[in-house]
Design a protein around this nucleic acid. Structure first.
Lengths: 207, 207
DNA sequence: GACAAGTATGAGCAATTGCTCAGTTTGCTG
DNA sequence: CAGCAAACTGAGCAATTGCTCATACTTGTC
């Protein structure tokens, strides 16, 4: 059985090495985004970074590790954006405005490089460790949403945990779909519409 | 330049050949579903079907053609399910019940083999011809939804085409997400919730 | 039974890929 | 400058993959 190396053989310490590592990561983002995962070969990534293939394997133990690092960075930035809203200024009064805050954060987090995002979260085979991390992040978001919804008297929906899951999943899925949609759609209109949809869902009392 | 064969070298005429082709397709579904696209090698597919690799290439010009045929079959069955609702018995009176009809059709169309669906529509590289077909199918669904929504006095949303896109995309995306979710979620509750969300979105008049 | 057309086989080719490692270059430190 | 570790190189190995083709078996027809 072939044991898979998990650690790079070198940790960059000098500034030159740190730069090299960074250039490799950026090149990987570009190559994955343009060629997809399978055709985004490590040789191509190294070439795009202006380095040899050997250098790439000094800093990344294998191809998957590069993908995991890119995906983790994206997820982390998403979590950070949401956390920033929760920690910072007091949340707006209106439920509608609160939803808009989170929806806008999600859109911003996708807008950077939709093609890369598509590769990272759809096409590429995600190693179990990464999947675990992503699920945990989602569950965390759902829990937080549940607390926010549960404490809001304007929320008239019955099953709060389910509603929290609906809201978080809707934002994630629809933002992903609309941002990666070709031809591009008007994201401002979409934002308004998604805010309206979730507001009506959460506060609507007909039935 | 290598020209890519587009037609299989033989069209099955005898019953035995038709069976073989069918067994290869079913094996491909199983293998793709279990191993994913990249690791779902043609040799593995042939082996799973109990045939030699040469036989596979008698009936399919290349690996992509197998994927396209599976994806097309899935999309076709989805379109057919919706069309059956539109052509058959008169649609229910209530907007809510109409939505439920389509949502249920979507869920049923995914329930068969979620893992395969994930491979076909997320992981695998989809050839342009297939993408074109899928986009056309979606646009067609959006148009149909637009007509249905436009003629309904209970629909209070302003931008009908945008609302139609929201509804169709929501059903597609969320059904996909919830059906492929691990651990499994209660699909009946989800169905109720999605019906409620879209109903409130379309008929809600606050703002 | 004989012939042809249809069907099935599978060893192996050509191409690609992830990755190694022996050797070279760079730049910090005394 | 000398010495040396860190950083970098890239030819090429081992493994895998999609696919071919010469050969052999099956089936229907007369």
């Amino acid at each position: 059985m072939t044991t898979k190396r998990l650690q790079p053989r070198k940790r960059a310490t000098q500034q030159r090495a740190i730069d090299t590592r960074q250039r490799l990561l950026e090149a990987a983002a570009r190559v994955f985004s343009e060629y997809g995962y399978a055709a985004g070969t490590t040789n191509r990534i190294a070439e795009a970074a202006g380095h040899s293939i050997g250098t790439l394997y000094q800093y990344f133990p294998n191809k998957d590790a590069i993908l995991v690092e890119l995906a983790t960075a994206h997820a982390t930035s998403g979590i950070a954006a949401v956390q920033r809203q929760l920690d910072g200024d007091p949340l707006p009064e209106m439920l509608e405005d609160r939803l808009r805050l989170f929806i806008r954060a999600a859109i911003d987090n996708h807008r950077g490089d939709p093609a890369l995002h598509k590769v990272l979260f759809e096409e590429a085979p995600r190693p179990p460790e990464l999947l675990t991390m992503l699920h945990a992040a989602e569950d965390q978001a759902i829990d937080a949403a549940g607390i926010l919804l549960g404490g809001d008297p304007r929320v008239s929906v019955r099953d709060i945990p389910l509603a929290a899951r609906m809201v978080v999943t809707s934002i994630e899925s629809l933002v992903h779909r609309f941002v990666t949609h070709t031809p591009p759609v008007d994201l401002d209109s979409f934002e308004n519409e998604l805010v309206a949809m979730l507001t009506h869902y959460l506060t609507g009392n007909s039935r």
